[in-house]
């Protein structure tokens, strides 16, 4: 279902190996398709059907109301909250990380190496320690329970990985590029904006993808720092549905919510996966 053979006329061994590849990939993809089909069919059943009928039985009478129930749990609003938090924290976080990485990679100063290690240490620290001090900090600066407070926290937690990889990338940039800008009389800040950032784009795209996935799925911090439902993000909304599923046997609503929340991401993948794949790198500069 998800493949066909090539129309070129390659050698027989290549036809065979292509066929094998197609079969293997199709089998794997069938797993994904099957899982999504299962979610979709279940989301249209009643809870009694879900437990009593075969998983492959079609819903006797499609329960579109499940989607209404899931939507009424506020998923629409949660989605925009997640979007707001993710876009802001990924862009600001990357900009701040770019600045710090530039300073660490391209400006010689005493303590540069020590500072880098300080940043890298953060990658290894488990995030477990943060909840109580963060709660107090945000409360004291009046950002508790606000999306902006969560944005500030998300920016900070992405910094170590971003700085570690961006600095490594910038160190390998040829000095001539930067120098040419200075010869033209550009200020350091201008050089940073017009030379360094464009040159760093492949790594920035890679990190943007990773940061987006992390933040989109994050729920421990969001749960503790956002006590009110107006400001819930998608993972918290789904948690609410999961609690309903486990404690009130309302599984079908969870499946419906899952389908609803995965649609925007799926659309994004469908549109942008090739662009993302072209932009990604974790290698050296010259790639």
């Amino acid at each position: 279902m998800c493949g066909s053979t090539t129309t070129r006329r390659p050698a027989p061994t290549r036809v065979m190996s292509r066929l094998v590849l197609h079969l293997a990939l199709a089998a794997y993809c069938l797993g994904s398709v099957g899982a999504f089909m299962w979610y979709l069919m279940t989301s249209l059943k009643t809870n009694t059907e879900f437990f009593s009928e075969s998983p492959w039985a079609l819903p006797a009478d499609p329960q579109w109301g499940n989607y209404l129930d899931a939507w009424n749990s506020g998923i629409g609003g949660f989605f925009f909250n997640s979007l707001y938090v993710t876009v802001l924290s990924v862009t600001i976080g990357l900009f701040i990380s770019l600045m710090a990485s530039y300073a660490l990679a391209r400006i010689p100063f005493r303590g540069s190496q020590a500072l880098l290690i300080l940043f890298v240490v953060g990658m290894m620290l488990p995030a477990f320690g943060a909840l109580i001090p963060l709660y107090l900090l945000l409360r004291d600066i009046g950002l508790l329970g606000t999306l902006n407070g969560l944005v500030v926290v998300y920016i900070a937690v992405q910094i170590p990985l971003n700085v570690f990889l961006l600095r490594g990338f910038m160190v390998s940039m040829p000095r001539e590029l930067e120098e040419a800008a200075y010869v033209d009389g550009a200020s350091p800040f201008r050089t940073f904006v017009s030379v360094i950032i464009p040159q760093s784009m492949p790594m920035v795209v890679s990190l943007a993808v990773l940061n987006t996935l992390n933040i989109w799925n994050e729920f421990v911090l969001a749960l503790v720092l956002l006590p009110r439902s107006e400001s819930y993000t998608v993972p918290i909304g789904l948690l609410g549905l999961a609690i309903q599923a486990e404690y009130s046997a309302q599984w079908v609503q969870l499946f419906a919510g899952l389908i609803l929340t995965s649609i925007p991401m799926l659309v994004l993948f469908a549109i942008a996966q090739e662009r993302i794949a072209r932009g990604l790198t974790f290698g050296g500069m010259k790639g």
Partner: peptide, 20 residues
């Protein structure tokens, strides 16, 4: 009314420990 966050109520426990 505040939602406790489900099993274990992590937000509530955090608030207890934070004195709030």
């Amino acid at each position: 009314i505040t939602f406790g966050g489900g099993p274990g109520m992590p937000p509530i426990m955090t608030r207890y420990l934070a004195g709030d």
